[in-house]
Write a protein that binds this DNA or RNA. Structure first.
Lengths: 117, 117
DNA sequence: CCGTATCCCCGGGGATACTG
DNA sequence: CAGTATCCCCGGGGATACGG
């Protein structure tokens, strides 16, 4: 695999695109949250809170908001008593799966490379 | 694109692999640094310092060390006067290109999705 | 149940100066 | 040039309590 040979402005545009992606996924929690919601198709706030080890309610709230703003997840309110809130991936959110799969594969290769095969 | 249907332990192992990858790439600087070195094939400390907008020498030093520990880059010392230090990608580092390409493509799609097509 | 508000602490990381 | 050392600040994020 070779580096792209883009020149000047094109190279910068590509770098910005990578950063856009990273900004969306950065931090400890985004991917585990997405993974939880994806795995169960639909998931409630407190479920995700349990799925994602170590996250606080404040953080979860913040992260879910960011994911929603980025249109990766959808928030669904059912007017039960008390209220039930479900989160699910949008179509756009599901397109992340390619990247997550690649990260999975690379992570496994990397572990072999570092820990020893 | 569907979610993987891995069950229980397998799903956890995959999540850990994703986190391994993210840990390696996390933060503002890793990918821009890799990109700079990759683009120029070989790059000196002060060159990268200029390429990566806004990074401090302390941060760059720290990040380069982490990348080296993770065997993504190689540090080459030439005994000129004063000393010259070159950084280049290892073969393992070059395997990141697939991921970076995917992040680029997804970032572009994402921008269209958010900013408007 | 689903969050928001408040308080508070710690360490990530910038600016700057210094060394080999 | 290629980093290291020191100082210092600010805001990310945990714990906890509260509100709808």
């Amino acid at each position: 695999m070779e580096c792209r040979n883009a020149q000047g402005e094109e190279h910068k545009r590509e770098m910005m695109a990578v950063q856009d992606s990273m900004d969306v996924l950065n931090g400890k929690w985004k991917i585990p949250i997405i993974s939880s919601i994806c795995y169960y198709k639909q998931r409630r706030f407190s479920d995700v809170l349990n799925d994602v080890d170590g996250i606080s309610n404040k953080m979860l709230s913040k992260e879910l908001k960011e994911l929603e703003v980025n249109k990766l997840i959808r928030r669904i309110v059912l007017d039960t008593q008390p209220v039930t809130v479900l989160y699910e991936l949008t179509e756009h959110g599901k397109t992340l799966q390619t990247i997550i799969n690649n990260l999975t594969e690379w992570g496994i290769k990397h572990r072999k490379e570092i820990v020893g095969r």
